[in-house]
Design a protein around this nucleic acid. Structure first.
Length: 254
DNA sequence: GTTGAGCGTT
């Protein structure tokens, strides 16, 4: 989708695409347009966005009508601080500049602007063996995702785990009220009951399994998941705490 | 809500 709202991506046959890297995730085409338009005729600006979140991926493509203008923009805007971040402008491997590259093999070592020394771009240069290109690209994509996806995944997992754990803590209150009568001394003593009680929300697991999987599949996978096996040392602690919760325990102050 | 090497379409 182009910022100019055309029916589609303008023809690249007469356009020179620039790749703008290191831009903030908040920077939009509208923010880049005035900057690049000052140095030449900008045909189109496109900022790849995430499929899921829709946020910018941190880079944009600016298309110039003329090469000299694009080159000038690279010299002028490359290293420019935008929104508090130094952007990197360079010719994109797309369009007329990449035609000789997308053919299947790199014919030219550098497009054009590579002649400039850019120490902050230690990124690997164009390699002759495109055989590893697919692998490298795939790695690159994963590498890109790791930043956010992995963080989100861990965050969600951790949060979910914590939430369930907390949720479980609230459960006892429910059964304790009406279950106090049911909880006979003989019944409460056995570690078995305790063991089950301290389990990681078995009901929750069963419920979840029933929603997403058949009961048969949850049976075997049910055993291993327990992280904290019951230990004898902890038993008295729980019982002791339970005693504290009893009304008579806190009554002494009266 | 966050993050930071890289190359593109609604």
């Amino acid at each position: 989708m182009s910022r100019f709202g055309r029916s589609g991506p303008p023809p690249i046959r007469d356009t020179y695409s620039l790749l703008v890297l290191n831009i903030t995730f908040r920077t939009t085409a509208d923010d880049l347009f005035p900057l690049f338009d000052k140095y030449g005729e900008v045909v189109d600006i496109y900022i790849p966005r995430d499929r899921r979140t829709g946020d910018s991926r941190g880079f944009a493509f600016v298309r110039y009508k003329y090469e000299d203008e694009a080159q000038k923009a690279v010299d002028r805007l490359d290293g420019r601080v935008v929104d508090g971040r130094e952007i990197m402008v360079q010719f994109a491997k797309y369009g007329p500049n990449a035609e000789r590259i997308s053919k299947g093999r790199i014919v030219e070592p550098v497009p054009r602007s590579r002649g400039r020394s850019r120490s902050r771009s230690p990124r690997r240069r164009y390699r002759d063996d495109y055989r590893d290109d697919y692998r490298d690209r795939d790695y690159r994509r994963r590498s890109r995702s790791r930043s956010r996806e992995r963080y989100s995944r861990d965050s969600y997992r951790e949060r979910d785990y914590r939430r369930r754990s907390r949720s479980r803590s609230y459960s006892p209150d429910g059964y304790k009220k009406h279950g106090r009568d049911s909880l006979s001394p003989a019944r409460r003593s056995p570690s078995r009951s305790r063991s089950r009680s301290r389990s990681y929300s078995p009901d929750d697991t069963k419920r979840r399994a029933g929603d997403s999987a058949s009961p048969a599949s949850r049976s075997p996978s049910r055993s291993p998941p327990r992280k904290t096996p019951p230990s004898p040392e902890r038993s008295p602690v729980r019982r002791k705490r339970n005693d504290d919760r009893s009304p008579r325990s806190r009554s002494p102050s009266t």
